[in-house]
Write a protein that binds this DNA or RNA. Structure first.
Lengths: 189, 189
DNA sequence: GTCTATATTAGGATAGAC
DNA sequence: GTCTATCCTAATATAGAC
């Protein structure tokens, strides 16, 4: 599917939600008549489906690559950075994926859920290895460590403004610092 | 507005989204005909509006109360706990408030935005005081500390299951630990 | 590949009886 | 306070010409 179409759809779905977005407005933003859209797709839902699959795959692949190529002590930092850079590079698509995928028909929704679950497991495995290596605390179950990391990563998509003072790599560094060291006043090392 | 109606609406809006939810299904879940709903409200949007205002106010009030009544060193813990208990006590309402308030008409949306902003400022002020008192790190701007705390608190609404092993106070303690001390292996105090 | 015209369905909301 | 019947609008999607 053409990138221009997907970009326009992502932008529209972010603003109106998938259900509230109309093919009228999508066509208008592309300078087409409604009917012309159906040359490129079979249904409005196809757009959401492609956005979700591409979004999920891009995170999963970039984070896997980042983990593999990082030295042992830097895997978490590298993963967080890759996640944040991937999602903010295509912020609309990833925001749509997160908040609208539930509107897919059951079969496709399950497929995206599996991708999501598999990525979450990637993160859990990474955190587990770091716990085993003694670099991460072991008094919090792996499961909750991963969920709280997801909290930190996902909600960022809803407030980050690329026009603000922070660029994605700097934001990633902040998130990493907080996730690893916490917010309390640091004792001098 | 009657609680039974609001509870049914919150549950429906969580599952289908505000736009995707139909008055048909809402009426059915209450054992009424569609038209009968309009004895209690003027439009479907009224439901969303009431849910948003009640949701925002309940957090704001309970957290303010928690901060006031806590001893100096315990304010952040107390605030987090109040926030998490308030939101999970009425999880559907608060999830709807967070993800659906953008579908309010502009005037009402702005009103809810103001409530939201005012609560966020409450949190920032608290964090600022703690930074000034030397209890929280000062190398991360207050603004980002507050945003990352929001990440931790908000996204939780989307995965927490009351049937799981953790009760809200226990989850609050986990979130507090991570926010304050971070995930790295703890040096023995 | 894009258009005009239209089929079809379903939504929110209202009228007015009981 | 709840009902049946209906209005009105707008949505997705299709047919078929150019």
């Amino acid at each position: 599917m053409e990138n221009q179409l997907l970009t326009a759809a992502a932008s529209l779905f972010v603003r109106k939600g998938f259900v509230g977005a109309t093919t009228r407005e999508l066509a208008k933003s592309l300078g087409l008549q409604r009917a012309s859209l159906y040359h490129y797709l079979e249904s409005k839902q196809d757009l959401l489906y492609v956005l979700c699959v591409r979004g999920m795959n891009s995170i999963s692949e970039e984070v896997a690559e980042a983990i593999q190529s990082a030295p042992a002590g830097e895997r978490v930092r590298s993963a967080l950075r890759a996640h944040i850079e991937a999602t903010l590079r295509d912020q609309d698509m990833h925001a749509v994926m997160l908040s609208e995928f539930r509107h897919l028909e059951p079969e496709r929704r399950d497929e995206v859920s599996r991708l999501h679950h598999s990525y979450h497991q990637q993160l859990r495995d990474l955190l587990q290895e770091e716990q085993d290596a003694g670099r991460l605390r072991q008094d919090i179950d792996n499961k909750y460590l991963a969920l709280m990391l997801s909290n930190l990563l996902n909600w960022t998509l809803y407030w980050y403004k690329p026009t603000g003072p922070l660029q994605p790599p700097e934001l990633a560094e902040l998130v990493y610092k907080l996730f690893i060291d916490g917010a309390k006043a640091q004792s001098p090392d």
